[in-house]
Write a protein that binds this DNA or RNA. Structure first.
Lengths: 325, 325
DNA sequence: GCATGTATGTCAACCGGTTGACATACATCT
DNA sequence: AGATGTATGTCAACCGGTTGACATACATGC
C-alpha cells in the first residue's frame, strides 16, 4: 500500500503538504489540492488509519459487547448501532460475550488495548468494579453500573404493569412469569416487580421461572416451558420477559394442544421485528430499539467530545396488541 | 493510559526489555518477567494495539460486510464468525451494507484504510472489478468474484433439487418460487435453476417472484405474498429461497385461511435457528451456517499467513422436514 | 514602504510500540 | 583459555501519519 511519501513524490510536494491537504489545514490553492488528490487517485491511496489513530490518540472505533448477535433483540440493536456509528464516521468492533464472565472481561481488555473511543455494554455479567476501571466513555444497557456511567433502558416497571394488567383484565387467573435471573442486577427485573405488585394486589395466583433471557441457548426455553406445563398445567396467562421466550411459549402451547388466546394468553417484551412473523402475532411491550441504539452511540460521542451527559435514559414503552391475548 | 516507558520506569528496566518480555523474545529470566509483569499489573497497563499494529503492519482485525446483522441468517453467520475470530485472536469490524452500492464501497474503503487483515464479503452488490482492487485477503459468500477470491456456498443446486422434488412428490401441481433478483450474480440463483429444471422436466405449472432475499425490508415480503395469492390463488406449493420468506409465506397462508400443509405446502432455505420457533415448524434446506462461518475465518487466516487456499468451497445441504410439507 | 494575507516548503518531534545491531557480564563446558 | 549459552542493557531506525516552528515569496491594501 502506498504511503503519504509516495503520494508526495508523485505529486511533487512534501509529505507535510499532503497531510495538510488531507486534513484541510492552512492555506491551500485549488491547484495544489487537485494535484495532490490526483496523485492519491493514481496510486489508489488510502491514509493509514492506524497511523492516524496513533498520532491523534483517537481511533474512531466504538466497541460493542452484547450477549450474542444471533439473538434477535441484540442483532437488531447492533444493526442500529452500526448504522448510526457509520453515519457519524465511526467503526464498530463487535464482541459476543455469550454471557461468560471471562469472555466479557477479555473483550473489555481487548477493546481497551485497541484504544476504542468508547464501549457500549449490552452485556454486563461482571461486578461493578470491573466497569469502573475501564476509564473510557461507556454506556450501559439496562443496568446502572455506577454514578458516572450513563445507562439506557425502557420503562421496565411500566412495561411490566401494562403486560400484567392486560392479562388480568382479559380474565387470566393463574399467571406465570418467565424472566431473568434475579441475581443479575439488571433493570429488567423491574418488569417482574411490577408483575408481583399487580398479582399480589389483585390476589391472583402466580408463579415465576428464571432463565437467561438474553441467552442464545434456545433449547433451554423449551425445557423451561415443559417444566411449567408439567407442574402447573392450568396456567392461563404467561408474561415472558422477551419476545423470543414468548414465541417459545406460543409454540409449546400449540404442541400441547392449548388454544391461544382461548385457553391461555401470552404476552412478550421487546418488540423485535420478527414478532410479526408468528401466527398469531404476539402481543408484546414495544421498546424503541432503534432510538435506544442511536442514543447509545450519541452518548459515547458526547463523552468523547468531553461533554457531560445525563446519566439516566428511560424510554417509554408501548403495548402492542397481537393475537396471543 | 500508561505506555511502555512508564512500565519500564516502574520496573527499573528499559523499554526494549519490556517489549521483549511482552513478546517473549530472547533470553528472559523468571525474575525479570515477574518484575515486568508486576509493573504492568500495578499500572494496569495494556500495550497499545494501534502502535503494535502499525509497526507490525498487521492489525489482527477482520472486516465483515453483510447486508444487515438484523437479518436472522446474517446475524447467525456474524455470530459464528465473531466467535471463531475471537478464538484465533482476531477482532471483528462489522459493516452493514444494507445492499446499497455506495455504502458497500464506502465500507470496503474504510476497511482498507483501517488496515484490516482481510475482508469477508457477505454482501456483494458491486462489479467484480471493485473486489479485484481490494488487494487484501478476501473471502466471499455465495458468489464467485474472480479466479483468486475463494468463495463459500452451500450446494445450491442440490438444495433447489431437494426442495422442489419434495413439493412435487408430495403432490403439489401449481408451484411458486420466491428468490433473489436474477441480475445479482449470486450462486443462490442455482436454487432457481434446479427448480426450473424439475418443474419443466415434470411438466408442472410454475411461476416465480423475485426480491431481495437478503434484504431487511420485511414488509416487501408481505406485499409480495399478497400479489402472489391475488394473481394465483390456487398455488399449492411455495419454494422460498430463505426461511424468513418462508415464514412470511406461512403467515400469509394463515391469514388468508389456507391450511398448511393441507391446502398448500411451503419449504424454505437456510436453516436459521429461529425456524423451530414457528408453528408448524418450517420444512427447510439446512446450510451448515456455523461451519461456513468458521471456514470463512480460516480462509482469511490462511491467506494472511501466505498459504494458498482452495478457491471453491461447496457445503452439503440437508433436507429438514417440518410441519409445512 | 510596510503590514497583512495567501500559498508553499523544510525540519524535527511525536504517537507507542518493534526490532536489529552491538556491548557487556557471568556461568558452564571442553 | 576460549567457545558457547544465558541474561540484560543501550541506541537508533522504523511503522505512517500529524503538527508546530520557522522560512520564503508573491499579491494586495493603505
Amino acid at each position: 500500500m502506498p504511503t503519504i511519501k509516495d503520494v508526495a513524490l508523485q505529486a511533487g510536494v512534501s509529505a507535510t503538504t499532503v497531510s495538510r491537504v488531507l486534513n484541510n489545514r492552512g492555506y491551500l490553492s485549488e491547484e495544489l489540492k487537485a494535484k495532490v488528490y490526483g496523485a492519491m487517485k493514481e496510486l489508489n491511496y488510502r491514509p493509514n488509519e492506524l497511523a492516524r489513530s496513533l498520532s491523534r490518540s483517537k481511533s474512531n472505533i466504538i466497541g460493542l459487547i452484547i450477549p450474542h448477535v444471533s439473538h434477535p433483540f441484540f442483532g437488531e440493536l447492533a444493526g442500529h448501532i452500526e448504522d448510526h456509528a457509520y453515519r457519524n464516521g465511526y467503526k464498530l468492533l463487535l464482541c459476543n460475550s455469550q454471557l461468560d464472565k471471562s469472555k466479557e472481561l477479555d473483550h473489555i481488555d481487548m477493546l481497551r488495548a485497541s484504544r476504542v473511543d468508547g464501549i457500549i455494554m449490552g452485556s454486563h455479567t461482571l461486578e461493578v468494579e470491573a466497569y469502573n476501571q475501564i476509564h473510557l466513555p461507556v454506556v450501559a444497557f439496562d443496568r446502572k453500573l455506577s454514578d458516572d456511567i450513563p445507562y439506557i433502558c425502557s420503562d421496565n416497571y411500566k412495561g411490566g404493569l401494562l403486560a400484567t394488567t392486560l392479562l388480568v383484565d382479559k380474565g387470566c387467573r393463574k399467571l406465570a412469569h418467565i424472566g431473568g435471573h434475579p441475581h443479575l442486577n439488571v433493570l429488567s427485573l423491574e418488569r417482574y416487580r411490577a408483575f408481583q405488585d399487580i398479582v399480589e394486589q389483585r390476589g391472583i395466583w402466580h408463579t415465576s421461572l428464571h432463565t437467561d433471557i438474553n441467552g442464545f441457548n434456545f433449547h433451554e426455553y423449551e425445557r423451561l416451558l415443559e417444566v411449567l406445563f408439567q407442574e402447573h398445567p392450568d396456567v392461563d396467562g404467561i408474561f415472558a420477559s422477551s419476545d423470543v421466550i414468548a414465541a417459545y411459549a406460543l409454540k409449546a402451547c400449540h404442541e400441547s394442544g392449548r388454544r391461544v388466546p382461548e385457553d391461555i394468553k401470552i404476552i412478550g417484551y421487546d418488540g423485535i421485528s420478527l414478532r410479526g412473523l408468528l401466527t398469531p402475532s404476539i402481543t408484546t411491550i414495544l421498546q424503541p430499539i432503534e432510538a435506544m441504539g442511536k442514543l447509545a452511540v450519541d452518548l459515547i460521542l458526547e463523552q468523547v467530545e468531553g461533554n457531560s451527559v445525563v446519566m439516566e435514559h428511560v424510554f417509554p414503552v408501548e403495548l402492542e396488541l397481537g393475537g396471543t391475548t
